[in-house]
Amino acid sequence: MSYEPARPVGRLLLTPQDKDVAARVRRLRRLGLGARAEPAFDAFADRLAEVTAVPYSMVNFIDENRQFFAGLHTPDGGDLDGGLGGELGGGPAVGRYMARDYGFCPHVVVRRKALVLEDVCDYPRFAGNPVVDEIGVRSYLGAPLIDHTGIVLGTVCAVDIEPRPWGRAGLEIIKSMAAELVEQIQLREGGGLPEG
């Protein structure tokens, strides 16, 4: 597969319309996902941060109103109860929850494919997102979590406050990690993965 970073465009892209949200919410509820933090997902986010050498990484489930970081890695290992903004750039507190119009994961969910933003400021469609100025995000690497039913449950992502040259290696890492997590989630249906 070829490496294709997001291409700059000349207009701001609003949060994309998510036609699959109702099916995703039903699937997340059936799997018991997206309502609470889980140690297994936090451990996965820790490993993703280590592999990608970033200060922040998330396992993110998205419903009709918000994003929920069921797995979260921060530099201090905290839960971010005080807010992601305070951690990154002193902006508004978002904790484990974030509005759907913040960040880049909603774009990954709708696109159904990985998104590589080496410097979000190079892309007008993403540079205007609130996480850039309000929270301090400069670099993003994310991939969708597509389960065996074909539904995109959410994303895994790595985030930095500095530009990052992810390259093809970064793309392959995030896609591989997403596939690994999907396998773990699918075990949940068969009773193989303990919840929480």
Rank of each mutant, 00 (worst) to 15 (best):
R27V: 13
F104A: 03
E180F: 13
P5Y: 05
V9E: 08
R24F: 04
R27K: 09
W166H: 02
V54I: 05
V116N: 02
I174L: 10
L33C: 08
R125N: 04
R24T: 09
G191K: 11
R27T: 12
Y123K: 02
D119Y: 00
A114F: 14
G78A: 03
F69K: 03
Y123R: 03
R96P: 01
I161S: 06
P5T: 06
A179C: 11
G34K: 02
Y3D: 09
E162V: 04
P92N: 10
M58R: 05
R29D: 15
G90E: 01
F41D: 12
A35L: 14
A37T: 14
L171E: 13
G90A: 03
L14I: 09
D46C: 07
A35M: 13
L117A: 10
G191V: 09
L115D: 00
Y56E: 00
G86E: 10
A45C: 03
C157L: 08
L171W: 05
V152H: 05
Q186A: 14
D20N: 14
R66D: 05
G89Y: 01
D122T: 07
R125A: 05
P165D: 14
V54N: 04
G85M: 00
A179N: 12
T149H: 12
L181Y: 12
N65F: 13
L72C: 07
E4W: 04
Q184T: 15
V131L: 03
C157V: 07
L80H: 06
A22Q: 11
R111K: 13
A40T: 12
V59R: 08
W166L: 02
Y140V: 00
I151Y: 06
A6N: 01
L187M: 15
L84E: 07
A169C: 07
V59A: 05
P39Y: 10
I62N: 04
V110P: 06
V182S: 05
V156W: 06
A35Q: 15
I62D: 02
L88I: 05
G128C: 01
L28V: 13
Q67M: 04
P75F: 07
D81K: 15
R164C: 03
L153F: 10
A49P: 01
R11H: 14
E118L: 02
E87R: 11
I185W: 13
E50W: 11
S2K: 10
L28A: 09
G167C: 07
G89Q: 05
V109L: 06
D46P: 06
P130G: 09
C105V: 04
E183F: 14
L153V: 13
E87N: 08
G170C: 05
L80R: 06
I151S: 06
D20G: 14
P194D: 14
L84G: 03
S57D: 07
V54W: 08
G32T: 11
V51R: 11
L33N: 07
V132W: 00
E195K: 15
E134V: 01
A178E: 10
R100M: 09
A22P: 05
A158S: 09
V51E: 10
G32L: 10
Q186P: 14
V131S: 02
I135C: 02
Q17A: 15
G103E: 00
V94G: 07
A158I: 03
G170Q: 04
F126K: 00
V159L: 09
E189Q: 14
R26F: 08
L33E: 08
L84Y: 06
S139W: 03
L13I: 08
T149D: 11
D101I: 00
